[in-house]
C-alpha cells in the first residue's frame, strides 16, 4: 500500500512540475510565435506587391484580405492568403492583385507538403515568377508542355502538373472570393 502511495505521489509530482514548467515556457513563447506569424504574413503581403510599402488588413471581409498602398498612399492593390489541396496535402499561398483584380502582381507559396524535387518546386521563384502580370480574365489557366499563348495562361512545371494546377485553382478560388466581396461592398456604397 505504501508503495502504491509512493508511486502515485512521485508521478503526481513529476506531472505537476512538468505541467508548470511547460505552462511557463508556453506563456513566454506564445506571443513570440504569434508575432512571428504576423510578421511573416506582413512580409509576404509586401513581397507579392513589389514597390508597395503599406498595408491595411480589411476586417469585415470574412476572410483574410489586405489592401496595399505605395509611399504616397495610392492603393496599389490587394493581397490575400488562400489555401487548398495540392498533390499530397494542403498548399497555402499569398497572392497579390491589382486594384481592379485584373492582373496578378505576385505569388508566394507559404506552406506546402508536396513531393520534394517535383511538386515542391512550386515554391521556387522560377515558377511563382511566371504569375507576374498574368491576366485573371476570365480566369488563370495552366498549360502543359507548350509556351503560354494568351495573357491568362501560365506554364505548369514539368512533372508537377497536379501541384501547378492546384496552385492555379487556389488562386482562382481566391480571386472569386475577393471579387464577390468587393462587388457587395460596391453595392453597399451605392445604396448609401
Amino acid at each position: 500500500m505504501n508503495n502504491v502511495t509512493k508511486m502515485l505521489v512521485v508521478l503526481l509530482v513529476i506531472g505537476v512540475v512538468s505541467g508548470g514548467l511547460l505552462a511557463y515556457i508556453s506563456d513566454w513563447a506564445t506571443p513570440i510565435i504569434k508575432e512571428n506569424a504576423r510578421l511573416e504574413t506582413e512580409r509576404a503581403v509586401l513581397e507579392v506587391h513589389p514597390g508597395s510599402t503599406k498595408q491595411i488588413k480589411i476586417d469585415n471581409a470574412g476572410f483574410e484580405l489586405y489592401q496595399v498602398m505605395n509611399e504616397k498612399g495610392d492603393i496599389t492593390g490587394y493581397a490575400m492568403p488562400n489555401e487548398g489541396t495540392g498533390f499530397q496535402g494542403k498548399v497555402k499561398i499569398m497572392m497579390g492583385m491589382t486594384p481592379n483584380l485584373d492582373e496578378i502582381t505576385g505569388l508566394k507559396v507559404l506552406d506546402q507538403v508536396e513531393t520534394p524535387g517535383l511538386g515542391a518546386e512550386i515554391v521556387k521563384d522560377y515558377f511563382t515568377g511566371r504569375f507576374k502580370a498574368i491576366s485573371t480574365q476570365p480566369e488563370i489557366k495552366s498549360v502543359k508542355g507548350k509556351k503560354p499563348e494568351n495573357p491568362n495562361e501560365i506554364e505548369a512545371i514539368t512533372g508537377a502538373t497536379i501541384s501547378s494546377v492546384a496552385v492555379v485553382k487556389i488562386m482562382n478560388d481566391g480571386i472569386k472570393k475577393v471579387k464577390d466581396y468587393l462587388s457587395t461592398q460596391e453595392k453597399k456604397e451605392g445604396a448609401k
Binding site: 508521478l11 513529476i14 506531472g15 512538468s18 514548467l21 511547460l22 515556457i25 508556453s26 513566454w28 513563447a29 513570440i32 510565435i33 512571428n36 506569424a37 511573416e40
Partner: peptide
C-alpha cells in the same frame, strides 16, 4: 516518458518561437 516529453515540448516551443 513524462520527463522526456516535457523536454521535447520545450524544444518544440523554443524552436517555434526562435527558429520558425
Amino acid at each position: 516518458i513524462v520527463v522526456i516529453a516535457t523536454f521535447v515540448t520545450i524544444v518544440d516551443i523554443v524552436m517555434k518561437a526562435k527558429f520558425p
